[in-house]
Design a protein around this nucleic acid. Structure first.
Lengths: 350, 350
DNA sequence: ATTAGCACTCAATGAGGTCGAGTGCTAACA
DNA sequence: TGTTAGCACTCGACCTCATTGAGTGCTAAT
């Protein structure tokens, strides 16, 4: 029976025992027995005492027993309690920080590379599967627009925004359009759009533009369509996943059916985006097992943080089994987020 | 005993039996017994006769027995014989062809999208894992070079080649460089490079260029470095893989260790490129089991064909278990290759 | 050459039996 | 009152052994 009063704060000994069980279980993936604990963590009490405490912890819902004659494993509430009330994050060591910073600096010219590198770094350090959601960068202004003829009847529209994003589309142009036409089209477009807000562009009186350049109507139409297309397409967040293989090492996913569920989620960008909680500012957010929205992910845990790019919030984190090294994962994700923010601020915001 | 003479060409009845065994085995993944065959494919002979023939086929090395009291399964030589001497490719039906063509047309503006779509189409139709290797396009000529200032001290170098490839790099420029400088730099670069072969560029007398524009030396150096960088980086073929999940459905990979091996290969671009045979012109190439170079892929089969882009050869195909529907895979890969070639020719070569 | 018949083989399946880690309870102890 | 030793009990893991049945190879008849 309980002591009558339900105490949210556990006494030190219970905490110590809960922690021991969590550490052992996370390491071995096996139920933990009373004797094993006393030995390994050399607590100065007997196994019988531990058993009593364990019974209490079970009543509180922090532990559970797979079957009568097995040891205890932490319940999801157990992990939750640990994460909320006891855990200390294990941030990256200096070497790792340096390594990451170096990786980033080496790839700074190419934004895609940066993301990839961070992802694979994160998954390597944590040994879980990492994900990075790159937010839609809602650029405000066109910086630069250019039509480049590529071959007969084909051209490429290049748009650069003030946030340094480059987009392109191939379009068809009438073969009659010559290089002088192209040049004047470019001039017109740049004069018209450069520095304009996206929202303004949408209201731009396209009609007048068409009238203005009736002769090259066809080419201009294509170009406008392409630009429209480009600006629409930025609606999609990009998802980068790394270290899926790490999943296979977790004993909880030796069951092919479970594995398939997980991989299915990871393969479908939309499902994953749906699963991940919103990044709420700075904090590292931890979602444990059944706390997850998707049924298919009820046996997974997610550790995630938000980072800022050009005013938008992106998400970065890891996903793994409920039996996760939360201390390491949370610390690493936090460090990585900080470093991303720093690097971005320094190199992309001027 | 054999008939004495070793005949490479099997008689009709043996062929029929071999084929039946292959079809059944591919479908069920279970050893096939003599009775089952007679029934299912209603051959007009008795099980005992089939048994005799099967014994012969085993002596020839085309069948093997997991253990005495099991049925037979095709050996790798068996599959090889079937593929070489008997198989008829099952090409895409019209609906599928149309679907693919539609998918391609919808995504034509973006080369990356095209590749992705083809990959996922291929893996969906075959139910195996598909791969596409996009070759290095060794562009010959610079079409267009542009330096676009993005924010203070930062700019973007954009290069378009005559093959319609767009590349970019972010670079640092001294803050003193103003928009007039940028314009004149652009003019110089375009005058100098446009239409130049890559090889020529490397020999271009950069010294004179520098002298010419001493004042903007810093910016120009950065730009040259970026361009150099870009042209070097094209050394990497791109690898796109799709439908990895299909692997999980194959009973031969229910063993986690095997699965891990395969996924490891698929995750490492270099390993995969190494594994895949060179695409030899037009033909569909089939590699069965131990014919593969990598030890880790001795239980896999690969069906692959080459396609041409701008004179370079790319590779497209599927990878799956030795127990593969070669007829379907080969036919599909062939169809897809043809369609890629057509679409590329029509839309990218002018 | 083909086939029916039959003895033989061997993986798969399931039923007992043993083992041991781990528990819960009770009674003794500080 | 909290802690501990002792002990009976539980139950999954593992081993063994017998049964089953699909499938074979061989032999003798057609």
């Amino acid at each position: 029976m309980l002591t009558g009063v339900i105490d949210m704060t556990l006494d030190e000994r219970k905490k110590r025992i809960l922690e021991s069980i969590i550490k052992d279980y996370v390491e071995t993936a096996e139920p933990v027995g009373s004797r094993a604990i006393v030995k390994k963590h050399n607590l100065r009490i007997s196994a019988a005492t531990v058993r009593n405490e364990m019974a209490d912890l079970e009543d509180l819902g922090y532990l559970e027993q797979p079957h009568t004659s097995a040891g205890r494993i932490p319940s999801e509430s157990g992990f939750r309690y640990y994460v909320d009330c006891m855990m200390e994050r294990e941030t990256l060591v200096d070497d790792e920080v340096e390594l990451l910073q170096k990786i980033l600096k080496d790839n700074l010219q190419d934004w895609d590379e940066v993301i990839q590198s961070i992802g694979s770094f994160l998954s390597q350090v944590t040994r879980y599967t990492s994900f990075i959601i790159v937010p839609t960068i809602k650029f405000d202004e066109f910086k630069y627009i250019q039509l480049v003829p590529v071959e007969k009847g084909k051209a490429m529209v290049i748009v650069v925004t003030d946030t340094g994003v480059l987009m392109h589309r191939r379009i068809d142009v009438p073969e009659s359009v010559n290089s002088r036409d192209v040049q004047s089209i470019n001039e017109v477009f740049n004069r018209l759009f450069a520095g304009k807000k996206l929202t303004e562009l949408r209201r731009t009186d396209l009609q007048s533009l068409r009238d203005d350049l009736k002769k090259r109507k066809k080419a201009i139409d294509s170009m406008l369509e392409a630009i429209d297309n480009l600006t629409e397409n930025t609606g999609e967040e990009k998802v980068v996943i790394s270290g899926i293989l790490n999943m296979l090492n977790e004993p909880e996913f030796k069951d092919l059916e479970k594995l398939k569920k997980i991989l299915t989620i990871l393969e479908a960008d939309t499902a994953l985006k749906n699963l991940l909680p919103e990044a709420s500012g700075e904090a590292v957010d931890i979602t444990i097992g059944r706390e997850n929205r998707l049924d298919e992910a009820k046996e997974m845990s997610i550790v995630l943080a938000g980072y800022k790019v050009f005013g938008e919030i992106g998400r970065v984190g890891v996903i793994g089994p409920v039996r996760m090294e939360y201390w390491k994962a949370a610390g690493t994700v936090e460090s990585v987020r900080t470093i991303i923010d720093e690097v971005l601020k320094k190199h992309y915001h001027g």
